[in-house]
Design a protein around this nucleic acid. Sequence first.
DNA 1: CTGAAAGCGCTTACAG
DNA 2: CTGAAAGCGCTTACAG
Lengths: 335, 335
Amino acid sequence: MRPTIREVARRAGVSLITVSRVVNNSGYVSSETRARVEEAIQKLGYIPNNISRSLRLKKTNVIALIVSDITNPFWTTITRGIEDACHEQGLNVILCNTDESPEKLDEYVNVLLQKRVDGFLIAPTTDDTDTLISLVEQEVPLVFIDRHPQTIRASIVRGDSEVGAYKLTEYLISLGHSRIAILSGPEKASTSQQRTAGYKRACQMHQIAVDPSLIFCGEYNQEHGYHTTLNIFEQIHPKPTAIFAGNSLIAAGVFKAIYDLGLKIPADVSVAAFDDLTFRFTPEPFLTVVDQFPYQMGYTAAQLLLKQIGDQTKTTYEEIVLPVELIVRHSCRQV
Amino acid sequence: MRPTIREVARRAGVSLITVSRVVNNSGYVSSETRARVEEAIQKLGYIPNNISRSLRLKKTNVIALIVSDITNPFWTTITRGIEDACHEQGLNVILCNTDESPEKLDEYVNVLLQKRVDGFLIAPTTDDTDTLISLVEQEVPLVFIDRHPQTIRASIVRGDSEVGAYKLTEYLISLGHSRIAILSGPEKASTSQQRTAGYKRACQMHQIAVDPSLIFCGEYNQEHGYHTTLNIFEQIHPKPTAIFAGNSLIAAGVFKAIYDLGLKIPADVSVAAFDDLTFRFTPEPFLTVVDQFPYQMGYTAAQLLLKQIGDQTKTTYEEIVLPVELIVRHSCRQV
DNA sequence: CTGAAAGCGCTTACAG
DNA sequence: CTGAAAGCGCTTACAG
């Protein structure tokens, strides 16, 4: 059984209040009293109970992070940024993986609402809206990361998908490509809408006709990249000379399909993608990408959430769009 | 302000106890009463406060996970296994990154002790012993993952490093290699001791002299892999024909060094490593590895911790050694 | 500079 | 099947 503040008080011959003051460094305590209390704490191995503190203060210093899968390096890196920002401010983060299941999201949100976390950082997937709406209605501090569910007005930190896609497409056009397939994400996801929009804008700006049969929406996963690429090479004529993968999972699928088709990148087809994630174990990274700086994204999102937790008074809605960067490497060639 | 159990009770015309019973599904409640209470809960949007519940019950249903860096795919995958196991049992996990800093470890442990987490899952680094000893003395539920700090008796779940290293070395020997450099981890880390031991045992079993100048301890990071490999190719004669990297970070450094030296794998030198982590974005994985199944490792560790949290009575010490597997690919050649 | 008392929102052993 | 009362371990506004 751990000693409580009461035992410390008894041992130091003071009241509970005084002990509370020295523990929290608040209010006046004479230095002799402080010393006595500190000695008692020491001797008893007293560890303040923050459960009761939280109950009184209605503040847990814990936030919830909900992503689809921490194992996806994009989310891993975001998570690290979040944890660092929270650690600096003395908060802890509870990690949740939903695997894109609305039921798991529900479950997590319910449990964490019961645990009275101070706020939520959520990377929403397409079909989660109901639970999220209810969070917003309850005015729980909440910031979205990366994606913005349709119709929900809440704070968000995201990369500039439109501009990123524009730059990437423009780069491909500058290499002489005019038939560029884009393997985007789900039609309803704000990120894939923005990426497709950037792609279209670049085409239009450079007098290249947008061919709707080169725009493929699908999940942000390898299967989409793989099967769509196989499809493209079987059925589309004239074949595209470049493929723009909407994220790195899709890119991995594209790579595999091209490998299985016995083709070479960039000799037979140029490939570029969103998100720069394979660098860690590659001596010489190869893929041309748009980097969204996920660490910064997580860090910024956490800071925004902490700010909102700080001033609960005004329920302000804030959208932070982070700049992205085109990193040219060796997966695209001049045609 | 959220409604409390008191308001629900008033609205339903029952006592607090009764509300508590229906919320927790414990004890007898007539179905009419239950219905009335449930309606009140519904109408008020009552969300039980688990802070106060935790205070009473002395149980938070939260555990702490402390790793050096979630961004390292080995830990990412372990983390996912842990989170899944905890989620199944209704616990949440707080994620902490120490960056191998003993001070950060201290800080996290103190804060989380104050938050009264139900237990700790820790991947210790070499110099953390003091804080960890104190945790063990306090009989806080604790299980180590992957590594075992010297001198501390506590539960641990780890891969079979010795056998893994033995198999990997034996495989290299079977290809005709007799000068095999091993780039192991820190001298004091149990994992690197075991890997070095497995390496030596394999050499001895196959009548190959163990050359101490081919055994390189260092950090589990890219720098060690990089600089040691450069060193090897400048200074060691006769040169080793194979390099055994102690983990995947070291392997990445080895790869980069070999690339920078203008050499090819496996034509000029064979390379094999611990941990299979690059598969995700690679259509055709190349590196021959020992897979430690980090997902399983995390899952198992969490289960062990949850078991220990369950029966607090006996402070049993348990060591679970998980089997590992040699996965032969294309980074080693016959000599 | 120090303290008495109420209260944060639950649960539980006991009585009826 | 239902409830009164004590208590989990803190903090705070107020008084002295």
